[in-house]
């Protein structure tokens, strides 16, 4: 017996959880679009940003700073850390690897992942740090329509709002600013972009910085949900099937993919999981991505993959 209200509740919970995946996936898409690098380190960047934020926040609150000032300074500090990280990655890893094939770049970002995971935990500590930026209490909506209403977590709603704002902001940045246009030019053909005078290393720094800031935003939401801890990097891996489904090159694809993965895995867990043993959330997204790959390798919104010899 499946109750409509219950299905809706699971669906909405899943959709909103999917927004969180989208937040991480956005960072991947940005870097992929602008530099053709598949940035495996996005999850580690979320961890770094989260740790920098929560540790500086705790530090200032413990010394009696007012909460709003602590949050503002904490965000600023984390943003500076992400900028430093972006600079180091561009200067020492991707700069020297320019013109290498995608596989090499991908493996180098796995290396970056390990450096970031090790360094961030060494500097900021490796416990679970609770973060309280958004309300996390439950919220009942549509009580008139269904008996008992639908339970929604306020944090998930905040996550949705933030993701929406972020996408809008990024769209404006990409379409209407000079840097944004330069970014798109570099994405198209970096040699041609360079020849018309676009400073490529600066552009890549900007891309990594923007991805770092997206990681920071993701970290605020993820950290409030789970506490800032190492396992965030594994959850961030879920962004990969999101990308496969949505397409590597599409910002809306990242959002839609996240929604599909989030709602799909929650529905599967609730209605399929009980038949074949629980915990299928763990792999459902990946197998879904595998199925999509077989049918439509470029994803739902991705550009068609064309190869030339």
């Amino acid at each position: 017996m499946i109750v409509v209200g219950q299905v809706l509740e699971v669906l909405i919970g899943g959709l909103l959880a999917g927004v969180l995946y989208s937040l991480v996936a956005l960072g991947f898409v940005l870097i992929y679009k602008a530099s053709g690098v598949f940035n495996f380190a996005q999850g580690a960047m979320v961890l770094l940003a989260g740790l920098a934020l929560v540790r500086s926040l705790d530090f200032m609150v413990a010394r009696g700073a007012p909460t709003w000032a602590a949050i503002a300074l904490g965000l600023l500090f984390a943003a500076v850390i992400m900028a430093i990280c972006a600079w180091i990655v561009e200067r020492y890893v991707l700069g020297p690897l320019v013109n290498q094939d995608g596989l090499t770049l991908f493996m180098s970002t796995i290396g970056v992942t390990f450096i970031l995971e090790g360094a961030s935990q060494m500097i900021f500590g490796s416990d679970v740090y609770p973060l309280r930026l958004f309300p996390t209490d439950a919220w009942f909506v549509a009580e008139g329509l269904f008996p008992g209403g639908i339970l929604v977590n306020k944090l998930d709603v905040w996550g949705g709002l933030i993701a929406g704002t972020l996408v809008a902001g990024l769209a404006i940045f990409f379409q209407n600013t000079k840097t944004g246009r330069a970014l798109r030019a570099v994405a198209d053909d970096h040699a041609a972009a360079q020849s018309v005078g676009i400073p490529i290393s600066w552009i890549w720094f900007v891309v990594w910085l923007v991805a770092g800031l997206v990681a920071l935003v993701a970290a605020t939401v993820w950290g409030t949900k789970l506490g800032v801890q190492f396992s965030i990097t594994f959850l961030a891996l879920k962004a990969l099937p999101v990308l496969i489904i949505g397409g590597f090159t599409s910002v809306p694809g990242a959002i839609v993919g996240g929604l599909i993965v989030g709602s799909g895995e929650k529905l599967a867990e609730v209605y399929l999981g009980q038949h074949i043993g629980g915990g299928i959330e763990y792999w459902f997204a990946y197998v879904l991505a595998l199925a999509v790959l077989l049918v439509r390798p470029q994803g739902l919104f991705g550009e068609r993959i064309i190869e030339r010899i």
């Binding site: 020492y92 690897l97 796995i110 290396g111 970056v112 390990f114 090790g118 360094a119 060494m122 490796s126």
Partner: peptide, 15 residues
């Protein structure tokens, strides 16, 4: 953690 960092750096360096 040091193992993480050194492995990661070595990979980037070697690549």
């Amino acid at each position: 953690l040091l193992v993480f960092i050194i492995t990661g750096m070595l990979i980037c360096y070697l690549l």
